[in-house]
Design a protein around this nucleic acid. Structure first.
Lengths: 208, 208
DNA sequence: CCGTGTTTTCATATTTTTCTGAAACGTTCA
DNA sequence: TGAACGTTTCAGAAAAATATGAAAACACGG
């Protein structure tokens, strides 16, 4: 499956290609398209600044596709445009620090996915806000039963909102200033086995 | 866009539908298909145990689709099969604790995505292992230049491997025993502003 | 304001993913 | 064993996501 590869150049090229393929498969995990991931992989793994034609050629994709993908990656802030004096072409290079890369991805997904989700959850929660207390019997029927079901519904939503707010807050820490939160995460790993529960700090209890 | 909804039942139903829609949009983020997410949302938001026909009807999907989705969700361990005495139908109910749900998802993605990725990265790293040191000039050409490029390549891969090993380790903590790691994460949030950097702590360890 | 080299756009084509529905397959109970 | 019920499978249909490529839009230098 992996022929020894005679000379260094060949080995390097093969390793790069394989990295690109593997990274491409992770596309789903990053929430980007396969090709985008491959373009990023190429830029990352070569460490060079490449132009659209380089990318087209190496990845065998169309100009339009390359252009779109590169732009999207720039929007994601994980590659950046580089211009060379005396050369009208635009070059692109990938962020080389893995942590920075990861931070950018988390930040972006936070903005694109978690924030909107939270907004929606809040709205949804409000839809049944007025109905939950032991209020008047809005209709004839079993208002008590209704109230119970709605109360449970609201509890579920509240828990979910709380959870995602926690997640968003945590991610923001991870992401913001200079990524110090991340280092923390790493250090956690090494000293976690016996975790330092700060104080009484129960965060809920969610009895099913 | 959101009519006040006269009676409680109606409000509840609308809130549920909207939750299902919103959750369905997050499907990509969880790495599952839209319908799967909707089915899960339905089970979660109603809090009831439903059978295939209930799901088909409420979501307006085919039997095959419902069956597939339910099974996949069971495989993901985020819903479970429930059998009722004296009823031949199979019912399904969703895990109601958000943290448990999240843990299940993380665990699953760890197994399905991160672990294979790490295996691949290691293999890829090995492809250029023999070429990196200031070794013999395998071929005629500029072996020094080759060596430099390969050394850089290896450095990039090593960093990436290290990163994902950290991530895998961290996630495992998050996920494993009884989710104690998660509680920790939450508490972090509340006391992070001034983070407790342990020591010089360069993350490393992880030797393959 | 042209000419040349480059990038962007976008309608159309292609590929991939997801869904459907009906047949095949189990199970249980008389 | 076989009728009644229920679940799973899967080939083909439908839908969604991606890619292509040629034309339009840009950007300069002259």
């Amino acid at each position: 499956m992996t022929p020894p590869a005679a000379n260094p150049d060949r080995a390097l090229r093969e390793a790069q290609d394989r990295f690109i393929a593997v990274w491409g498969q992770m596309a789903g995990a990053w929430g980007i398209s396969r090709t985008m991931a491959e373009v990023h992989a190429l830029l990352y793994v070569t460490g060079e600044a490449l132009n659209t034609d380089d990318v087209m050629e190496r990845l065998q994709i169309s100009r339009g596709n390359a252009s779109m993908s590169l732009r999207a990656l720039v929007d994601w802030h994980i590659i950046s445009k580089v211009t060379r004096r005396g050369d009208r072409k635009e070059y692109f290079e990938a962020e080389q620090d893995v942590w920075t890369l990861f931070r950018a991805i988390v930040r972006e997904r936070l903005n694109r996915e978690v924030d909107p989700l939270l907004a929606n959850l809040h709205e949804i929660r409000d839809m049944t806000a007025r109905h939950d207390g032991p209020r008047e019997k809005t209709q004839a029927g079993a208002s008590t039963e209704d109230a119970r079901r709605i109360a449970e519904h609201n509890k579920r939503l509240d828990e979910m909102v709380e959870f995602f707010e926690m997640l968003a807050g945590l991610s923001t820490q991870f992401v913001s200033p200079s990524g110090k939160g991340l280092r923390l995460a790493a250090s956690l790993l090494t000293k976690l086995p016996d975790l330092p529960r700060g104080k009484g700090e129960r965060l809920r209890e969610t009895g099913s």
